[in-house]
C-alpha cells in the first residue's frame, strides 16, 4: 500500500499537466475557431511569399 504514497501524487501531477496544457491552448486561441481548424490541415503550408516571422 505504501506505493500509493508516490503513485497518487504522480497520477494527480500528470492530470494537472494535462489540465495546464488545455488551459494554455485555450488561452492562446486554439479553441476560437473549431470549424476552421478542422480544415486547416488541408491548406497549402507555404503561402506564395512566406511571411512567417
Amino acid at each position: 500500500m505504501s506505493a500509493l504514497l508516490y503513485l497518487i501524487p504522480i497520477a494527480v501531477l500528470l492530470g494537472l499537466l494535462g489540465l495546464g496544457a488545455f488551459l494554455w491552448a485555450l488561452k492562446t486561441g486554439q479553441f476560437d475557431d473549431l470549424d476552421g481548424a478542422a480544415s486547416r490541415i488541408l491548406f497549402d503550408d507555404d503561402p506564395p511569399e512566406s511571411k512567417d516571422s
Binding site: R40, L42, F43, D44
Partner: peptide
C-alpha cells in the same frame, strides 16, 4: 467553406 478561408488567406 474552408476553401473560402484558404482563398482569402492566400
Amino acid at each position: 467553406c474552408a476553401a473560402c478561408v484558404w482563398l482569402i488567406e492566400s
